[in-house]
Design a protein around this nucleic acid. Structure first.
Lengths: 334, 334
DNA sequence: CTGAAAGCGCTTACAG
DNA sequence: CTGAAAGCGCTTACAG
């Protein structure tokens, strides 16, 4: 059976207030009182009822993390870092995946968890800032949703997608590649990342004096390995000539490596490949993957710290937009 | 501002009980009353306070999932399936990773979340059943913790590790391999999976009439790509001859592919490789990975359904042990 | 330093 | 079909 404060108080011969003080580490308690209470707590195996505490305090100690795909290595690594960072604030993390489904995202944004979470870290695909609930402290991950002044009450942590994509593409061009394909192009409203990375790619081509051939744009509705492989196969089937691929994420790039291998093309001799994310897989793939990787640990820590400021109300600053650093990691594939 | 039942009741001119009835879908309510209440709910943007509901009902609608590593592809995929299955019961999932750290695991097992979760799905590395809290409905994932009769109150869902490992190894032997290395061997108390998979490996060798050469056992403290690569390198450096590798999981196998490649060995021509798990990576690696894969979706559904029975108390059956099916998927590597 | 009491927002017998 | 009231287990002014 579960015991309450009252039981402990009775057993220790004190009031519930005193027990509460002990439980919450209130300092000014007579040592012998504390000892008696602690003995009673141990004897009864008392543990506080968090629902009651939350009801009273209006806080739950839980933050929610909503990502499009839990089993995407990038988000899996991100999740781990968020969980770790949250632990330093004493929070546990409730993880949700939205599948990038607008309806699921809206549920999350509408605060479907209601008073259950103290805050939300949200990596939306489809959502615009306007749809955010506004009452729950929120930090947005990924690119800024492009509603002018639509940021609402949410802070924002992102990678500089344009710059990172430009660097990756420039690396390919700098290695003498002239026909660089872009893999992962999306034309849907959701594809904010895709649009920004495409812009970076195009900027790099322009800077290198390379023409922008629309034939080199390989669309991919999702960014899984299978989509990367399919995108490259489509390019090859269409007879498009290319000597490099900039994939908009690493799983696409891994799929590309496979499709190129199947076609008998050598990487990087025939085709150089660069990705985006820096997931662990790319360190061991054959060939290993050149990639531009955001400092994901920093991103996680930043997101959690910003959320902490909002939740504790320790800062009334206006919504903030932060960019985390990235760096190009050159390996075998390019 | 957040509104309560009372506010809604006042606005609709009814008692809180009636509002509660409407919110909870109680059927016998006069249509016009219901309409008035619903209008008030909409007008005030009322949403129930879950902490209060939980306090009253003793349930939270949250289940916890504790896995050793969130960014291990196997657990990431598992987590996704658990989240999906939980959603069909109206539960959200609080995800924790323990890092296989006994202290963290004990925290989880001790019900550190206290009254916060209705149940727990737990994939322990180090823990024995004896350490389970016993008050929170729990389903254990992975192999049965080997305390005799120590299952306690927990149900159990697992893969038949011995059989699956035996099949993978038998496949290698059946292809004519005579010197099959085992990659991922662990001698620690935590390595229950490792011990069972080793047993399956040994059984297959015996059945094939192959000698069990201890030189062929490659230990790996963790089961990441890096460990797999290191294990193979150690074997090669030691001058051990082998023509096949059975890796105790797919990430080990992927690391092995890389190390073999670095050593100039062809897979499968020189060395055949088989893994365990069936993660997505293995469909696209070069070469693609032969593996024995448990039906992870079924495993997730089963775990959640068993937990549901415990939580609702709809069944008082004794703790149950379930094995989910697996199958060997032959691809290029073996 | 400690106690008695109110109240957080729900649900649930108990009446009617 | 609906209402008034108690109580889930905490924390927090308010006293002393």
């Amino acid at each position: 059976m579960r015991h309450s404060l009252k039981h402990v108080a009775e057993r220790a011969g004190v009031s519930v207030k005193t027990v509460s003080n002990v439980v919450n580490g209130y300092p000014h308690i007579r040592p012998e009182t504390r000892a008696r209470v602690e003995a009673a707590i141990a004897a009864l195996d008392y543990r506080p009822n968090l629902s009651a505490r939350n009801l009273r305090q209006g806080r739950t100690g839980i933050i929610a993390l909503a990502v499009p795909e839990l089993d995407n290595p990038y988000f899996a690594e991100l999740t781990r870092h968020i969980v770790t960072a949250a632990a330093t604030h004493g929070w546990t993390v409730l993880v949700d995946h939205t599948d990038g489904d607008p309806a699921r995202e809206r549920e999350v944004a509408a605060g479907i968890r209601d008073h259950l979470v103290d805050g939300l870290i949200f990596s939306p695909l489809a959502l615009t800032g306007a749809e955010l609930d506004g009452t729950t402290p929120t930090v947005l991950l990924g690119e800024r949703v492009d509603v002018v002044d639509g940021l609402g009450p949410a802070d924002h942590v992102a990678v500089d997608n344009v710059a990172a994509a430009r660097e990756a593409t420039a690396h390919l061009a700098g290695a003498g590649r002239r026909r660089i394909a872009a893999l992962g192009v999306q034309h849907t409203a959701e594809g904010v990342s895709a649009r920004l990375r495409l812009a970076g790619y195009q900027a790099a081509l322009a800077a290198a004096g390379l023409p922008a051939d629309p034939q080199l744009l390989a669309p991919a509705e999702r960014w899984h390995r299978a989509d990367g492989a399919a995108g490259i196969r489509a390019l090859l089937d269409a007879g498009v000539a290319f000597d490099a691929v900039f994939a908009f994420n690493d799983t696409l790039a891994l799929g590309a490596l496979r499709a190129l291998h199947d076609a008998g093309l050598r990487v990087p001799a025939d085709v150089a490949v660069a990705g985006f994310d820096g997931i662990d897989d790319g360190r061991f793939s054959i060939p290993t993957l050149t990639t531009v990787e955001p400092d994901i640990e920093r991103l996680a820590r930043l997101a959690v710290d910003l959320l902490a400021e909002r939740i504790t109300g320790s800062s009334q600053r206006p919504p903030q937009e932060c960019l985390v650093p990235h760096r190009l990691t050159v390996r075998e594939s390019a």
